[in-house]
């Protein structure tokens, strides 16, 4: 029996059209024009208890909207959602006590108070029995290593410290389902890795189901076995990560900065040329050729700087799923 079942879920927003210019803004006072935005368009999936699932897709794909409908923050336009047997947007107390949501760019801590106070309030609001609260709190403090920052005002914490406290507060009531919306955005690489490690440990230890959205491939590949790719409100792929990698026909993008002009050097023979300037270029090569092409470039040309990058996710989706993505 899947823990989370979503069927034919859609969310349509009516957005007022904003026009530039003085006359247009006057006109809009009297007659508003709306356009319909299909943020989520007939998606369906099932998730078992204890899975870690990644929702991957470009900005505006509908990931956050989906998560909000799963957590009960948003009412769908049509379709059904069942999480642990509950209908999320009924916002039943029992349901809310068993889920948690962490939003990367938004804080649920009180800025002017020490983090500890926010924790205590959270525990009281969620009705966590004292003994369980103390136990969970101590575990989380150890796991996240935040003992020293508890008494400091949240406003004076660094972003990394604050993120750890946000994670702590979202887990104080031992939720069974965790929704993580862009949890590592804006955080430095070391902290990103630590957060991912923590999430993995938490899932292993408590068996909590975790749904994670991100537009960083790295987040998803580090944590999730199963990936759901969403673009323009539709699911483009729902399966295991290794299958997605295979499907992507992996490419790398090599960018070079030169000491002198290229002078007609034949880059096109090495791979797809993405951009070309006298002293700078970017080419796309199959993953397995990346090393060879790199050493060739380094030998042939006076390279000042060379980077090897993954193509951005939007490109990947466009390339692989072609027409479906542009509908």
């Amino acid at each position: 029996m899947p823990q989370i079942e979503v069927e034919n879920l859609s969310k349509v927003f009516r957005v007022p059209e904003r026009e530039a210019g003085f006359v247009a803004s006057l006109r809009s006072v009297f007659r508003r024009r709306y356009k319909e935005v299909r943020a989520v368009d007939g998606i369906a999936f099932k998730i078992e208890e204890g899975e870690i699932v990644g929702f991957l897709g470009p900005n505006g794909a509908g990931k956050t909207t989906t998560l909000k409908m799963l957590s009960g923050l948003l009412h769908p336009t049509s379709g059904t959602v069942s999480v642990m047997g509950h209908v999320p947007w009924r916002r039943e107390s029992d349901y809310l006590r068993r889920i948690s949501m962490l939003m990367g760019q938004r804080s649920q801590l009180h800025w002017d108070l020490p983090a500890m106070d926010s924790f205590i309030v959270h525990g009281a609001v969620f009705g966590v029995p004292k003994a369980q609260f103390d136990e969970t709190l101590n575990e989380l403090i150890e796991l996240l290593d935040i003992r020293e920052v508890l008494k400091k005002q949240v406003r004076s914490l660094s972003l990394g410290e604050r993120m750890k406290c946000e994670i702590c507060v979202s887990l104080l009531h031992r939720p069974s389902v965790l929704f993580l919306d862009e949890p590592t955005i804006g955080v430095d690489i070391a902290m990103q890795a630590r957060i991912r490690e923590f999430i993995r440990d938490y899932n292993r230890k408590y068996g909590a189901t975790i749904i994670l959205t991100s537009h960083y491939m790295a987040d998803v590949s580090a944590l999730c076995r199963r990936i759901i790719v969403i673009d323009k409100g539709r699911i483009l792929f729902d399966g295991l990560l290794p299958d997605l990698s295979q499907k992507l026909a992996p490419y790398k993008v090599i960018k070079i900065d030169l000491d002198r002009d290229l002078n007609g050097y034949d880059l096109a023979s090495l791979g797809d040329v993405l951009s070309l300037e006298p002293r700078k270029a970017a080419i796309r090569v199959p993953k397995e050729n990346a090393a060879a092409v790199t050493s060739r470039l380094l030998t042939d040309l006076p390279v000042l700087d060379l980077t090897i990058e993954d193509p951005p996710i939007e490109d990947v989706i466009q390339r692989v799923f072609g027409g479906a993505a542009t509908q």
Binding site: L73, S93, L96, M101, V125, F126
Partner: peptide, 18 residues
């Protein structure tokens, strides 16, 4: 305005009281 209102809706407490 900031979007943090969502956290209020995630709490198992009557929103107006809270």
């Amino acid at each position: 305005r900031s979007g943090s209102f969502d956290f209020l809706l995630l709490a198992p407490l009557d929103a107006q009281f809270h």
